[in-house]
Simulated scan of single mutants.
Amino acid sequence: MVDDAGMPYDDMTDTEFEEFCFELMRELGFVNVDWRKGTSLNASPADGGRDIVAERQVEEFDGAVHLERWFVDCKKYTKGVPPDKLTGLLAWATAERANVALVIASGYLSNPCKDFLKTYELNNRPPFRVKHWERPQLSKLLEGRDEFISRYVDARARTEAEIVAAEEYRTNRLWYYRKEVLLHNIEIGQREPLEPHIDRMMREAMRQTERQYADDPDFVIPEGEHEMWNLAYLQGELSALRWVLGDDWNNGDS
């Protein structure tokens, strides 16, 4: 199920979002889908305001089938999309007689942008329909498409920020586990007590870590027969993540 609070494309670049929209159009049944990127740059300066051109089969009541031509402009914006960013799409839809001009926004169109589109349709009466899919519409379109999400979106390369966050989380888990073991060994007499100020600082750091991960039931490695296996698995994950970030193999420091 898609969670609108965290959409699968949120961490994508502009180009990755265009590719996501391209694959989504195909998933929705569009045919002859053409991604007009044409460059290796992060943006597509030569796309003429239509990142994607696609066709949709429409069946009439009498069974006749014809193709609608859609021009699609993809907008990966953290803020509302401004009106001037849609003029290229509308110009090309007019010049090349598209049936639909579609804006796909990762977030939302700005209110001035929505007013602009309404005014444009009222004053120009274009021969094509103007549509826009914003975040809520995309969330609805992705409902029930878990296979598509896992096949395409979840298979993308992780960003460096995602890798760093995963490494930090596992480092904190390992650090906390080792401090628990240290305190246990002190309590049973297998280790000498720490200096009072060091003990106090360590316990406060542990309390801060507990507050930070209070809502995460998997943070603390549970005691029991699987404890050593869970610890080894955690160290393996940590070693792999650190290697990806440029460290040597088998770095288990915490």
Rank of each mutant, 00 (worst) to 15 (best):
E60Q: 02
Y213N: 12
I149N: 03
V164G: 02
G49Q: 04
D14E: 13
R69V: 15
F71H: 13
E223T: 07
G224Y: 08
G252V: 08
A240F: 13
A105P: 13
T39P: 05
A95C: 08
W35A: 07
E121F: 11
M201H: 09
S110D: 10
R173V: 15
Y120F: 15
V103H: 07
I149Y: 11
E225S: 10
R200H: 13
V53N: 02
K79C: 01
E68Y: 10
E192S: 14
H184W: 10
L182G: 00
G6H: 14
A157D: 07
A43H: 14
L234P: 03
A93Q: 08
I221S: 04
D11E: 13
D115E: 09
P83R: 05
R125C: 03
L90F: 03
Q208Y: 11
G63H: 15
N111G: 10
I52V: 13
P136Q: 06
R56H: 06
A166C: 02
P222W: 04
S254Y: 09
P82F: 01
T15V: 14
T87Q: 11
Q57R: 12
G29L: 08
E167M: 12
Q212W: 07
W35M: 12
V153R: 03
S139I: 08
K75N: 03
L141T: 00
K131A: 06
M25L: 14
P82D: 03
N99F: 01
D215V: 02
E27P: 06
A98T: 01
D11L: 14
E210V: 13
E60Y: 06
E55I: 05
E227V: 10
P112Y: 05
F20S: 12
R129M: 11
L67V: 09
E210N: 10
W35R: 12
N123A: 09
